[in-house]
Design a protein around this nucleic acid. Structure first.
Lengths: 188, 188
DNA sequence: CGCCCCATGTAATTTGTTACATGATTGT
DNA sequence: ACAATCATGTAACAAATTACATGGGGCG
């Protein structure tokens, strides 16, 4: 049940409403953890009931009121507990790899467009990460001595950057392989 | 519903029982797709009902009988259909990244052991992948001209290798960062 | 005798996804 | 007028996880 913990971390970094959390899960945090607003609202309600979160009604003008959630003491304790227990090195769900192996039983050439599309998506993500890195950590606007929280956010971002670069290079490899198979007619 | 497709690919590569599939999902395929035996049995039954798979009862001596599943014609068609429709570039569930950002609100040094443990797991996986690559693709025992299926399996394996190398390098970066934070007392 | 491997499943619970629903404000 | 953004949810359904359950054979 790690969505709970992702929410705790995000709310510790900055309190916010369910809607705001959902938006964050589409950007920064969402790069290594996804969740939709329906899921988030459900979990927020449960966690509030468990006393892990505190709510504050924030009236707004020109906009619907919102409920601002923040982490209560028991929530902090729950996070600390989780941080101290080991977790499984994550398992992947890599659809594209399944498709590539499946292509052996169909037409490999038909995958080229799909792979190119993924290549584009990952290139865009990389550009986005790099822009964020310049903005928040390495650019002239960034705070000179970073505090612990910023250092940790930066190292996570570097992980995202490394992941995208690796993926792009691999997709190039996949494309080259597909082209090689296309050049050599599949008669084997 | 991509477990269906992962099963189709695996059974096309080689027919087998639910138990055997579960084992494969712990090894080769499992590196980019995970599933437990409970899940697999349920899906196999459903797919058989849908006519996508064929079953054959295989009596064995000294062992419980097994049901060997193989892909029926409609299953092949279903796979082909899936291969031709675009899929979303996958979203991640990276617990460790959540932990790292969470560590800012706890003791970052406490994460060192956890990160080292992950480092070990990924190093082991890399070694295992490399051994598999030598055995099946680059070693002297491997078939000299690989067919299309083998080329595709190889490029997927290269992806796994690239992923593990990237992850190991990143975990080194994480460890260095954690040590740097430990060296500089968190007074900021 | 106990543990692991083979082989199959059921049941309960928790998560995650998809679709539907409401309603005000701002911008084109 | 229409679409997008902010803000919150419910309901139905699909999928994944965890626990429980059974039973023979081989190994130390």
């Amino acid at each position: 049940m790690a969505l709970d913990h992702a929410i705790l971390v995000s709310l510790l970094e900055k309190p916010g409403s369910g809607y705001e959390l959902a938006r964050r899960f589409e950007r920064s945090i969402g790069y290594f953890w996804t969740a939709t607003h329906q899921q988030i609202y459900r979990v927020l309600k449960r966690m509030e009931g468990e006393g892990l979160l505190a709510v504050r009604d924030v009236p707004q003008q020109g906009r619907p009121d919102k409920k601002e959630y923040s982490v209560a003491a028991p929530g902090r304790a729950a996070l600390s507990l989780w941080l101290h227990e080991p977790i499984e090195p994550e398992s992947m769900r890599h659809d594209l790899a399944v498709k590539i192996r499946g292509a052996a039983f169909d037409d490999p050439a038909a995958l080229v467009r799909e792979v190119e599309r993924h290549h584009q998506v990952h290139s865009d993500r990389l550009a986005h990460y790099l822009a964020g890195e310049r903005r928040d950590f390495t650019g002239p606007e960034a705070p000179a001595p970073l505090d612990a929280g910023q250092e940790l956010q930066h190292v996570v971002l570097r992980g995202g950057i490394a992941y995208e670069r690796m993926t792009i290079a691999w997709l190039d490899d996949v494309l080259a392989t597909l082209h090689r198979l296309g050049a050599t007619p599949p008669s084997a």
